[in-house]
Simulated scan of single mutants.
Amino acid sequence: MALALGCSLAVAVPGAYVLSRLRRRAIALHVGALVGVAVAAVAVGIVGAALAMFISTHDLTVLLVVVATSGLVSVGVALWLGRRFAADAMWAAEAESTRRELVAWVSHDLRTPLAGLRAMAEALEDGVVDDPETVAEYHSRIRVETDRMTGLVDDLFELSRINAGALRLTLASVALGDVVSDALAGAAPIAGARHVRLVATDGDWPAVLGSEPELSRVVGNLLVNAIRHTPADGSVTVTGGRDAEGAWLAVTDCCGGIPVDDLPRVFDVAFRGEPARTPAAAGPGLGSSAGLGLAIVRGLVEAQHGRVEVENVSGGCRFEVRLAAS
């Protein structure tokens, strides 16, 4: 026993020093080294004690093979688990960073309209503003800002349902053409106020397997996003059809394109892109610009077993939704 303990300590003490030097290294390497030191200390202790025992050469060989095999398997499993743990830790760090960014954006988007609402309410309450035209304007602006905050709260609620996995949809056959027609009718006043043309193809729209309320929100969010980033006198085009992969819907705008490095992040929560694509004000009917609309689109599309992608095209970008045809 003393011999086994001494052999184990001979490995464990230097191993502890090595581990202390690896403290700030990669998690997978640290876990692998930790298990390696533990396995090596036990193995050396067992081998040292076995060599001092009067056992046959055959038994000693078997013991050495078993110890070596167990040690290699243990270290291999430790490295695999270490990589998994490192990936989970990285995902958790990214999720926490996204959460902090989202809180910062939402706090800003709430603070700005609340400050304006407070100022206008105080002006009306103190009688600073009394002519009917200005009072009516203040009332209109209060309603607009209230609608913006309501939309932001609705987006946060929808996003929380998606991220929590609480979104349970009943899928059925939905006429995609009807959904697009309703969404265009709802977005027409917004586009008109910003002098943006809405164009839709007159083709044979397919039926898809999905949920009509969520599909309406997907198309509505894509249209609002396209209108927000399209300059005056520009156009937003909606197309759709069916191919070998299933049904598809595309919304193309005239935003001028998205930087290639930003394309993979377009559907991330709270991502707004470069300043040129971030409006100073949302504008009438456009709701908040907290970077939640496209994240909600991706969540709702994936909940209907589809996918959404974005690519740059001449003069703008194209968002394409893929769904199962019905």
Rank of each mutant, 00 (worst) to 15 (best):
residue 15 G to W: 04
residue 239 T to Y: 07
residue 218 V to N: 05
residue 252 T to Y: 14
residue 215 L to A: 07
residue 292 L to D: 04
residue 19 L to S: 00
residue 307 R to A: 07
residue 51 L to T: 12
residue 101 E to Q: 12
residue 123 A to I: 06
residue 157 F to I: 15
residue 72 L to C: 07
residue 144 V to D: 08
residue 148 R to Y: 10
residue 37 V to D: 11
residue 61 T to K: 12
residue 238 V to C: 13
residue 46 I to Q: 14
residue 255 C to Q: 06
residue 297 V to A: 03
residue 267 F to A: 03
residue 223 L to Y: 03
residue 56 S to K: 00
residue 65 V to D: 11
residue 62 V to G: 15
residue 5 L to H: 06
residue 66 V to C: 10
residue 191 A to H: 01
residue 123 A to P: 07
residue 19 L to Y: 01
residue 51 L to E: 15
residue 13 V to K: 05
residue 97 S to G: 13
residue 306 G to I: 04
residue 126 D to Q: 11
residue 296 I to V: 15
residue 82 G to P: 10
residue 73 V to H: 01
residue 44 V to N: 14
residue 67 V to D: 03
residue 8 S to M: 13
residue 77 V to W: 06
residue 158 E to F: 08
residue 21 R to I: 12
residue 301 V to H: 00
residue 292 L to N: 09
residue 52 A to F: 11
residue 67 V to P: 03
residue 103 V to L: 06
residue 288 S to Q: 05
residue 324 A to D: 12
residue 23 R to W: 14
residue 226 A to F: 07
residue 180 V to E: 10
residue 85 F to C: 14
residue 28 A to S: 15
residue 254 C to V: 12
residue 71 G to M: 06
residue 97 S to L: 08
residue 125 E to S: 09
residue 176 L to F: 05
residue 54 F to Y: 10
residue 148 R to G: 01
residue 321 V to H: 13
residue 318 R to W: 09
residue 324 A to F: 05
residue 82 G to V: 11
residue 222 L to I: 00
residue 251 V to D: 10
residue 18 V to G: 01
residue 42 V to Y: 04
residue 177 G to L: 05
residue 27 I to H: 08
residue 231 P to W: 10
residue 86 A to D: 13
residue 197 R to K: 06
residue 111 R to H: 15
residue 315 G to V: 03
residue 137 E to V: 03
residue 319 F to A: 01
residue 88 D to V: 02
residue 80 W to S: 09
residue 210 G to R: 00
residue 58 H to I: 10
residue 288 S to T: 05
residue 49 A to H: 14
residue 118 R to I: 13
residue 73 V to E: 00
residue 125 E to V: 05
residue 104 A to C: 09
residue 82 G to Q: 11
residue 138 Y to P: 04
residue 156 L to E: 13
residue 259 P to I: 04
residue 194 R to S: 13
residue 8 S to P: 02
residue 168 R to L: 08
residue 151 G to R: 07
residue 11 V to N: 09
residue 14 P to I: 08
residue 124 L to G: 01
residue 175 A to F: 01
residue 172 A to F: 01
residue 73 V to P: 04
residue 216 S to Q: 10
residue 25 R to C: 05
residue 318 R to D: 03
residue 128 V to Q: 07
residue 63 L to A: 06
residue 214 E to F: 02
residue 325 A to W: 04
residue 161 R to P: 02
residue 4 A to Q: 14
residue 89 A to R: 13
residue 14 P to Y: 12
residue 16 A to L: 08
residue 217 R to M: 11
residue 121 A to S: 14
residue 280 A to W: 09
residue 150 T to P: 02
residue 264 P to R: 00
residue 57 T to W: 08
residue 110 L to Q: 11
